[in-house]
Amino acid sequence: MVLLKYKRTQRTTGFGSPAEAYTDNDIDWNRLLLPKPHAMYFFSVRGSEYDEFNINDKDLAIVDCSLVPEIGDLVILAEDGEFRIGDYTGSEPEIIGVVSRLVRLLRKP
């Protein structure tokens, strides 16, 4: 999965920049959002109103399937042949993973 490539724009001044050796310090958003990419998935949330987790319709839930759910976590679960998003109470039969990050588009495309 390729998520984001963030690179500082390099100025073309004609001279080599003395700071070039430090370009390794660029922020890697992959590491922030997908620390364990092979165990992480995106789900698109569908729902109407705000709720106690402050989730909106069309938010993107980043799900970490390597985590063990704890009471109160927001989780993705499979129920009646569908995926649902909800809080973990400990009695859900089939947990897909823990929602560890949420991406919200403040202006919908």
Binding site: M1, Y41, F42, F43, S44, V45, R46, G47, S48, D51, I55, D57, L60, A61, I76, E82, F83, R84, I85, G86
Partner: peptide
């Protein structure tokens, strides 16, 4: 797992 338009849907 790889296309934004194709992410699975989770209903609230």
């Amino acid at each position: 797992t790889t296309r934004i338009e194709d992410f699975p849907i989770a209903e609230w």
